[in-house]
Protein backbone atom coordinates (compact mmCIF):
# COMPACT_ATOMS: atom_id res chain seq x y z
CA UNK A 1 0.00 0.00 0.00
CA UNK A 2 1.47 3.27 -0.94
CA UNK A 3 1.54 5.94 1.65
CA UNK A 4 1.86 8.82 -0.72
CA UNK A 5 -1.27 10.63 -1.71
CA UNK A 6 -2.60 13.64 -3.44
CA UNK A 7 -3.97 16.56 -1.48
CA UNK A 8 -7.70 15.92 -0.99
CA UNK A 9 -9.91 17.92 -3.21
CA UNK A 10 -11.55 20.85 -1.51
CA UNK A 11 -14.95 19.73 -2.71
CA UNK A 12 -14.56 16.36 -0.99
CA UNK A 13 -13.59 18.03 2.26
CA UNK A 14 -16.50 20.41 1.98
CA UNK A 15 -18.85 17.58 1.13
CA UNK A 16 -17.76 15.52 4.15
CA UNK A 17 -17.85 18.52 6.47
CA UNK A 18 -21.28 19.53 5.21
CA UNK A 19 -22.60 16.00 5.65
CA UNK A 20 -21.41 15.80 9.25
CA UNK A 21 -22.82 19.23 10.04
CA UNK A 22 -26.20 18.02 8.84
CA UNK A 23 -25.82 14.81 10.82
CA UNK A 24 -25.04 16.82 13.95
CA UNK A 25 -28.38 18.59 13.53
CA UNK A 26 -30.20 15.27 13.42
CA UNK A 27 -31.08 15.57 9.73
CA UNK A 28 -32.61 12.20 8.81
CA UNK A 29 -31.50 12.41 5.19
CA UNK A 30 -27.93 13.05 6.28
CA UNK A 31 -27.97 10.08 8.67
CA UNK A 32 -29.26 7.91 5.83
CA UNK A 33 -26.47 9.14 3.59
CA UNK A 34 -23.86 8.47 6.26
CA UNK A 35 -25.22 4.96 6.76
CA UNK A 36 -25.31 4.36 3.03
CA UNK A 37 -21.65 5.31 2.74
CA UNK A 38 -20.28 3.49 5.78
CA UNK A 39 -22.97 1.22 7.22
CA UNK A 40 -21.70 -1.98 5.59
CA UNK A 41 -18.07 -1.27 6.47
CA UNK A 42 -18.95 -0.50 10.09
CA UNK A 43 -21.06 -3.64 10.26
CA UNK A 44 -18.24 -5.86 8.95
CA UNK A 45 -15.81 -4.38 11.42
CA UNK A 46 -18.29 -4.93 14.26
CA UNK A 47 -19.03 -8.46 13.09
CA UNK A 48 -15.33 -9.31 12.91
CA UNK A 49 -14.85 -8.15 16.47
CA UNK A 50 -18.00 -9.32 18.28
CA UNK A 51 -18.67 -12.43 16.21
CA UNK A 52 -22.46 -12.52 16.12
CA UNK A 53 -24.97 -10.70 13.97
CA UNK A 54 -27.12 -9.61 16.92
CA UNK A 55 -24.19 -8.08 18.79
CA UNK A 56 -22.85 -6.51 15.61
CA UNK A 57 -26.25 -4.90 14.98
CA UNK A 58 -26.24 -3.43 18.48
CA UNK A 59 -22.71 -2.17 18.03
CA UNK A 60 -23.55 -0.54 14.68
CA UNK A 61 -26.44 1.34 16.27
CA UNK A 62 -24.17 2.51 19.07
CA UNK A 63 -21.57 3.65 16.53
CA UNK A 64 -24.05 5.76 14.56
CA UNK A 65 -25.51 7.38 17.67
CA UNK A 66 -21.95 8.24 18.70
CA UNK A 67 -21.25 9.57 15.20
CA UNK A 68 -24.26 11.86 15.53
CA UNK A 69 -23.06 13.05 18.94
CA UNK A 70 -19.55 13.86 17.73
CA UNK A 71 -20.40 14.94 14.17
CA UNK A 72 -19.97 18.65 14.88
CA UNK A 73 -16.34 18.02 15.90
CA UNK A 74 -15.34 16.39 12.61
CA UNK A 75 -12.48 18.32 11.00
CA UNK A 76 -11.79 17.29 7.39
CA UNK A 77 -8.36 18.88 7.53
CA UNK A 78 -7.22 16.40 10.18
CA UNK A 79 -8.74 13.20 8.85
CA UNK A 80 -10.96 11.89 6.11
CA UNK A 81 -14.46 10.97 7.06
CA UNK A 82 -13.84 7.25 6.61
CA UNK A 83 -10.93 7.48 9.05
CA UNK A 84 -13.10 9.33 11.55
CA UNK A 85 -15.90 6.77 11.23
CA UNK A 86 -13.66 3.72 11.54
CA UNK A 87 -11.58 5.19 14.34
CA UNK A 88 -14.73 5.82 16.34
CA UNK A 89 -15.96 2.33 15.45
CA UNK A 90 -12.75 0.74 16.67
CA UNK A 91 -12.82 2.71 19.91
CA UNK A 92 -16.38 1.67 20.66
CA UNK A 93 -15.61 -1.93 19.81
CA UNK A 94 -12.59 -1.96 22.08
CA UNK A 95 -14.69 -0.45 24.87
CA UNK A 96 -17.28 -3.12 24.25
CA UNK A 97 -14.66 -5.87 24.37
CA UNK A 98 -13.20 -4.52 27.57
CA UNK A 99 -16.61 -4.34 29.22
CA UNK A 100 -17.23 -7.90 28.22
CA UNK A 101 -13.93 -9.38 29.20
CA UNK A 102 -13.41 -10.98 32.59
CA UNK A 103 -9.98 -9.63 33.27
CA UNK A 104 -7.61 -11.28 35.74
CA UNK A 105 -7.71 -9.66 39.20
CA UNK A 106 -5.41 -6.69 39.51
CA UNK A 107 -4.80 -6.33 35.80
CA UNK A 108 -7.17 -3.43 35.35
CA UNK A 109 -5.06 -0.64 36.77
CA UNK A 110 -2.59 0.86 34.37
CA UNK A 111 0.79 1.09 36.02
CA UNK A 112 0.14 -1.58 38.62
CA UNK A 113 2.23 -4.36 37.22
CA UNK A 114 3.00 -6.25 40.37
CA UNK A 115 -0.27 -8.02 41.00
CA UNK A 116 -1.35 -9.71 37.77
CA UNK A 117 -0.35 -13.20 36.98
CA UNK A 118 1.08 -13.66 33.50
CA UNK A 119 -1.70 -14.91 31.30
CA UNK A 120 -0.57 -17.32 28.60
CA UNK A 121 -3.62 -16.83 26.46
CA UNK A 122 -7.00 -15.18 26.52
CA UNK A 123 -10.10 -16.79 27.79
CA UNK A 124 -11.58 -18.25 24.63
CA UNK A 125 -15.08 -17.99 26.07
CA UNK A 126 -15.04 -14.21 25.97
CA UNK A 127 -12.64 -13.39 23.18
CA UNK A 128 -13.33 -13.35 19.50
CA UNK A 129 -11.03 -15.72 17.66
CA UNK A 130 -9.87 -14.90 14.17
CA UNK A 131 -11.44 -16.90 11.41
CA UNK A 132 -10.91 -17.73 7.77
CA UNK A 133 -8.19 -16.01 5.84
CA UNK A 134 -7.24 -13.72 8.70
CA UNK A 135 -6.66 -16.73 10.97
CA UNK A 136 -4.58 -18.37 8.28
CA UNK A 137 -2.39 -15.33 7.76
CA UNK A 138 -2.06 -14.69 11.49
CA UNK A 139 -0.87 -18.25 11.96
CA UNK A 140 1.97 -17.56 9.55
CA UNK A 141 3.32 -14.72 11.68
CA UNK A 142 5.98 -15.18 14.36
CA UNK A 143 4.41 -16.08 17.72
CA UNK A 144 4.96 -12.74 19.42
CA UNK A 145 3.59 -10.72 16.51
CA UNK A 146 0.58 -13.01 16.23
CA UNK A 147 -0.22 -12.88 19.93
CA UNK A 148 0.17 -9.13 20.15
CA UNK A 149 -2.15 -8.55 17.18
CA UNK A 150 -4.76 -10.96 18.47
CA UNK A 151 -4.74 -9.50 21.96
CA UNK A 152 -4.83 -5.86 20.87
CA UNK A 153 -6.82 -5.81 17.65
CA UNK A 154 -9.23 -8.67 18.28
CA UNK A 155 -9.47 -8.74 22.06
CA UNK A 156 -9.19 -5.08 22.97
CA UNK A 157 -6.25 -5.18 25.39
CA UNK A 158 -3.95 -2.19 25.61
CA UNK A 159 -0.30 -2.54 24.71
CA UNK A 160 0.64 -2.15 28.37
CA UNK A 161 -1.71 -4.94 29.36
CA UNK A 162 -0.30 -7.19 26.65
CA UNK A 163 3.19 -6.32 27.82
CA UNK A 164 2.30 -7.50 31.32
CA UNK A 165 0.46 -10.58 30.10
CA UNK A 166 3.34 -11.71 27.94
CA UNK A 167 6.03 -10.52 30.37
CA UNK A 168 7.66 -8.68 27.51
CA UNK A 169 8.98 -5.09 27.50
CA UNK A 170 6.51 -2.53 26.18
CA UNK A 171 8.88 -1.38 23.44
CA UNK A 172 9.23 -4.93 22.16
CA UNK A 173 5.47 -5.36 22.14
CA UNK A 174 5.03 -2.11 20.18
CA UNK A 175 7.63 -3.16 17.63
CA UNK A 176 6.07 -6.59 17.31
CA UNK A 177 2.67 -5.02 16.72
CA UNK A 178 3.92 -2.63 14.06
CA UNK A 179 5.94 -5.25 12.25
CA UNK A 180 3.17 -7.80 12.52
CA UNK A 181 0.56 -5.42 11.17
CA UNK A 182 2.77 -4.37 8.29
CA UNK A 183 3.53 -7.98 7.39
CA UNK A 184 -0.10 -8.99 7.77
CA UNK A 185 -1.36 -6.18 5.59
CA UNK A 186 1.25 -7.01 2.99
CA UNK A 187 0.11 -10.63 2.84
CA UNK A 188 -3.57 -9.73 2.84
CA UNK A 189 -2.98 -7.25 0.03
CA UNK A 190 -1.16 -9.93 -1.94
CA UNK A 191 -4.09 -12.30 -1.33
CA UNK A 192 -6.49 -9.67 -2.57
CA UNK A 193 -4.39 -9.02 -5.67
CA UNK A 194 -4.23 -12.72 -6.45
CA UNK A 195 -7.98 -13.06 -5.92
CA UNK A 196 -7.76 -15.41 -3.00
Amino acid sequence: MGVGGRRPKLTQMQDEWSLMQRVSKGDDAAVIELYTRFGALVFRSCYQTVGTRAEADDAVQEVFVQLWKTAARFDPERAKLITWVMLLTRRLLIDRLRRKQAKPPGAALVGDYAAPEPKPYIDSGTAQMPQGLLAKRLAELPNLQREVIERTYLQGFTLREVSVQLETPLGTVKSALSRGLARLRGRLSADEASGQ
Binding site: V3, G5, Q48, T83, M86, R185
Partner: peptide
Protein backbone atom coordinates in the same frame (compact mmCIF):
# COMPACT_ATOMS: atom_id res chain seq x y z
CA UNK B 1 0.38 11.43 3.15
CA UNK B 2 -0.55 10.28 6.64
CA UNK B 3 -4.18 11.31 6.20
CA UNK B 4 -4.37 9.43 2.90
CA UNK B 5 -2.70 6.36 4.41
CA UNK B 6 -5.11 6.34 7.34
CA UNK B 7 -8.10 6.57 5.00
CA UNK B 8 -6.86 3.57 3.00
CA UNK B 9 -6.20 1.57 6.14
CA UNK B 10 -9.58 2.54 7.59
CA UNK B 11 -11.25 1.18 4.46
CA UNK B 12 -9.27 -2.06 4.44
CA UNK B 13 -9.00 -2.77 8.17
CA UNK B 14 -7.66 -6.28 8.63
CA UNK B 15 -9.38 -8.62 6.24
CA UNK B 16 -12.95 -7.84 7.17
CA UNK B 17 -15.41 -10.72 6.72
CA UNK B 18 -17.59 -10.66 3.61
CA UNK B 19 -20.90 -10.29 5.43
CA UNK B 20 -23.63 -7.78 4.67
CA UNK B 21 -25.92 -6.18 7.23
CA UNK B 22 -29.64 -6.93 7.20
CA UNK B 23 -31.58 -4.26 5.25
CA UNK B 24 -33.66 -3.61 8.38
CA UNK B 25 -30.54 -2.48 10.27
Amino acid sequence: AVIQFQAELAREQLCLPAVEPEPSL
